[in-house]
């Protein structure tokens, strides 16, 4: 082959390579949009409930997607993309909102213990009273109560009760065993109930002295 042809071929080859890369890039973008974008509602709602406002939720979701796109090569096709995206967002959330936080996913037992000690002192529920607690409660009070829970418990309550995720999915999102999902959810709901009871008491829906209520021993849980 003459040198001139060789150069010509090389140039052609180079052009083809370049074009292929463009196609690959387009393919990447398409795949990303097809696979990752549909989970935005799930991510946005979780972000909204964790941050408590639209602006921060939008920022968090946006950051999550940008990171996901940049690290798209690290995602293994066929694995749980929703969990992958969730973990990216959870890390972003921790970096942003809990600078001095403990390890992600780890429960601060001190925090929980303190919480339980307050629950222990004033038990709050008998079956006759439950109607009063639940029926007079407003949306913002549920949200406020939710915001008072430690992050680990809030997370599972949001995922299970607001977002309707299965225990298996939640276990996958948080890298914890299903048994832990079960118990965190049970405790989380109980803590939330305690907060709702406080609201009800403040508003005067519930009267009476603590001794009238059945004492529920938290040690049982």
């Amino acid at each position: 082959m003459r040198l001139k042809d060789k150069i010509k071929n090389l140039l052609k080859q180079e052009k083809r390579d370049k074009k292929l890369t463009d196609e690959e890039l387009l393919e990447k973008q398409k795949k990303f949009e097809e696979e990752a974008i549909p989970h935005m509602q799930f991510l946005y709602n979780f972000a909204y409930r964790m941050t408590g406002n639209e602006e921060d939720a939008k920022d968090l979701v946006q950051e999550t997607y940008m990171k996901a796109f940049r690290f798209w090569e690290q995602y293994e096709p066929g694995t749980n993309i929703k969990a992958w995206l969730f973990k990216i967002m959870k890390n972003s959330y921790i970096n942003k909102y809990r600078k001095a936080a403990k390890e992600p996913g780890k429960v601060d037992y001190e925090e929980v213990k303190n919480f339980y000690e307050t629950v222990r002192d004033e038990s709050f529920e008998t079956s006759d009273l439950q109607e009063h607690i639940f029926e007079n409660i407003f949306e913002d009070e549920v949200i406020e109560a939710l915001n008072k829970l430690p992050d680990e418990f809030r997370t599972v309550v949001i995922l299970a009760d607001i977002e309707g995720q299965s225990y298996e999915e939640i276990a996958d999102f948080l890298d914890i065993p299903i048994g832990t999902v079960r118990s965190r959810l049970h405790r989380g709901r109980k803590m939330l109930r305690k907060e709702l009871f406080e609201f009800a008491k403040k508003k005067g829906y519930i009267k009476g002295k603590p001794k009238d209520y059945e004492i529920d021993d938290p040690e049982k849980d």
Binding site: S127, F134, E139, I143, V157, H186
Partner: peptide, 18 residues
């Protein structure tokens, strides 16, 4: 009570559109 708690959360806190 736990059942009722779950129902209350579901009834009061709705999924938001993006």
């Amino acid at each position: 009570l736990e059942k009722k708690t779950k129902q209350t959360i579901q009834a009061k806190v709705k999924i938001l559109p993006v």
